[in-house]
Every structure is written in C-alpha cells, then in structure tokens.
Amino acid sequence: MTLTQGQPANTLRKLRSTLATLYHGQSRTALRFQFAVLLIDLAIIAFFIIAPVWRERPGFLWLDYAVATLLAADVTARALAASDIVKWLRQLTTLVDILILVTLLAPTLFANIGFLRVLRLWTLSRSGFLWRPLRKRGLQQWEDTGRAVVNLVTFIFAITGFVYLFFVGQWKGLAGYVDALYFTISSMTTTGYGDITLPGTGGKLASVVVMLLGISLLIRLAQALFRPAKVFHPCSHCGLKRHDPDAVHCKACGNLLNIPDEGHGR
C-alpha cells in the first residue's frame, strides 16, 4: 500500500528530473531538444508579429488556440523543470509568459493587450535559449549585441502592434500594418517626416514614448556594436565575465587572470 501511494510522487520526481535535464542540460539529446524548442518559439513569435494582420482571416481562432496549447505545454514543462517552482513563478519573464498565455486563451476578451504577445521574444532572450549556440561556439562576445538587437526588435513590433490596434482606421494617414510599422520606425529614429501622425493628445503622448524609448534602444545597440572588444573569461574570484583581451588582473577585484591566447586556441 505504501509503495502504491509513493508511485505518483516517484513518477513526478522522475518527470521533473527528465525535464530539468532536457531544458538545462548540455548533452547531445538536451541540446537537440533545446534547439527544437527554440525553432518552435521563433515560429510562435513570427505568428505573434503577423497576428494583427491575420486576425480577421478564417481559422485564425483555431491557430490562436493551437499556439496557446504549445505555449501552455512549454510553460508547464519549464515549471516542472525548475528547482524552485515558487521562485520561478515570481520571475518577471514567467509572469509575462503567463500573461501572453492568458491573451491566447481568451483572445476576444484581451484583444486590447494582444500586441504584448511579441514580448515572448524578450522572455526567450532572457531564458538563455537564444544564446546557448553562441556560447557553445565560443562567440559569447556577440551576446550583448544580440540582446540589444532582440530588445530593439521586440520594442518595434510591440509598438507597431499597439499603433495598428488603436489608431489604424481611425485616422486617414494610417491605413494598415505597414503604415503602423513605418510610423514606429520614423518616430523612434526621430526622423519625423510628418506624413503619418497619431491624432489627439493620446497620440502625441504615444509618439513621445516611442521617441524616448526608441532612441535609447538605438543608442544601446550602437554601444554594443562599437564599444571596445572584450573577451569572455569569468573571474574565478568575483565572477566578472568580460575583460580586455590583454588584461592580466581583474579590474573589479584585482584577481590574477589567465586569459587563453586566441592564437594558441582555447
């Protein structure tokens, strides 16, 4: 009787262990699984980007629920793979994913915040799935640039979805998704051609937000692209990960470093 009662707990424990290995492991099987999950995630994000245009097409609702099923399975699996589920639930990325899942399960009720679904790209970036291939190939120095690009792309399509949802069709200058994208890009770069503007006080405030946040993200991307090159070599004492290629001591704690020379391999 005791053995029978313990079987569900043992099964759950084995399932959590298997999922933790698949999501966080470095074996060939785990890396293949992570790559497959990454491809599915990128396909879902592509769906989120084009969803505003496809919303009125036949069968869209079924596709929406299919994506919700995939996302629900992924969120559940990540929860089981977490060593501390309560701590995992408190993370901002987890809360964002749950919010995205809610908008998928009730697309009509939460139509006004559907543009936030593209934030899935940001949560994917924060999970580390996007950067593991770079780390595996010794290209960690491109991770900061990649994160800056992801933040910028996420911002562009989130704002484009917002503008498309709330302003297209209500103003003669905005006729479709491309117009919303065009307005977002021209505003965030402060080009300001003036051929497309958002009406009213709300439109002006939205434009100000786009300009301020957009130029900040562009500057962040420029810094990531043009700042002096650093090598990825965690300090054994304080954990600082990036140092100058010719650094002898860690600039944070002074610990002696032993950075491998690229000419002699790593």
Score class of each variant (00 low, 15 high):
Phe48Glu: 11
Phe48Leu: 09
Phe48Pro: 05
Ile49Val: 12
Ile50His: 11
Ile50Gly: 13
Ile50Pro: 13
Ala51Arg: 02
Ala51Pro: 04
Pro52Ile: 13
Pro52Gly: 15
Pro52Lys: 06
Val53Ile: 14
Trp54Asp: 14
Arg55Gln: 11
Glu56Tyr: 07
Arg57Val: 06
Pro58Asn: 12
Gly59Ala: 08
Phe60Leu: 07
Leu61Ala: 15
Leu61Met: 14
Leu61Arg: 04
Trp62Asp: 15
Leu63Trp: 13
Leu63Ala: 15
Tyr65Ser: 04
Tyr65Val: 01
Tyr65Met: 07
Tyr65Trp: 04
Ala66Ile: 13
Val67Gln: 08
Ala68Asp: 03
Leu70Asn: 02
Leu70Pro: 06
Leu70Met: 00
Leu70His: 01
Leu71Thr: 12
Leu71Trp: 10
Leu71Cys: 09
Ala73Leu: 11
Ala73Arg: 04
Val75Asn: 14
Val75Gly: 10
Ala77Thr: 06
Ala77Met: 08
Arg78Leu: 14
Arg78Glu: 12
Ala79Asp: 01
Leu80Phe: 05
Leu80Ile: 12
Leu80Lys: 02
Leu80Gln: 00
Ser83Arg: 10
Ser83Asn: 10
Asp84Leu: 00
Asp84Asn: 08
Ile85Thr: 13
Val86Arg: 10
Val86Phe: 01
Lys87His: 13
Gln91Gly: 14
Gln91Arg: 07
Leu92Thr: 08
Thr94Glu: 08
Leu95Ile: 12
Leu95Gln: 14
Val96Ala: 06
Val96Asn: 03
Val96Thr: 02
Asp97Leu: 01
Ile98Tyr: 00
Ile98His: 08
Leu99Trp: 10
Leu99Met: 11
Leu101Gln: 11
Leu105Gln: 06
Leu105Val: 13
Ala106Arg: 04
Ala106Cys: 05
Ala106Gly: 08
Thr108Asn: 00
Ala111Lys: 04
Ala111Cys: 05
Ala111Gln: 12
Arg117Met: 02
Leu119Cys: 10
Arg120Gly: 03
Trp122Glu: 02
Trp122Pro: 00
Thr123Arg: 00
Leu124Asn: 01
Arg126Ser: 00
Arg126Gly: 11
Ser127Asn: 07
Gly128Leu: 09
Leu130Glu: 02
Leu130Phe: 03
Trp131Ile: 12
Arg132Glu: 15
Leu134Ala: 07
Arg135Lys: 09
Arg135Leu: 15
Arg135Thr: 15
Arg135Met: 08
Lys136Met: 13
Arg137Met: 13
Arg137Phe: 14
Arg137Lys: 13
Gly138Phe: 12
Leu139Gly: 08
Gln141Val: 12
Gln141Pro: 11
Trp142Ile: 04
Trp142Pro: 07
Trp142Met: 00
Trp142Val: 03
Thr145Asn: 02
Gly146Ala: 11
Arg147Cys: 05
Ala148Asn: 11
Val149Glu: 02
Val150Tyr: 07
Val150Ile: 15
Leu152Trp: 03
Leu152Thr: 05
Thr154Cys: 01
Thr154Val: 14
Phe157Ser: 02
Phe157Asn: 03
Ala158Leu: 15
Ile159Pro: 09
Thr160Lys: 05
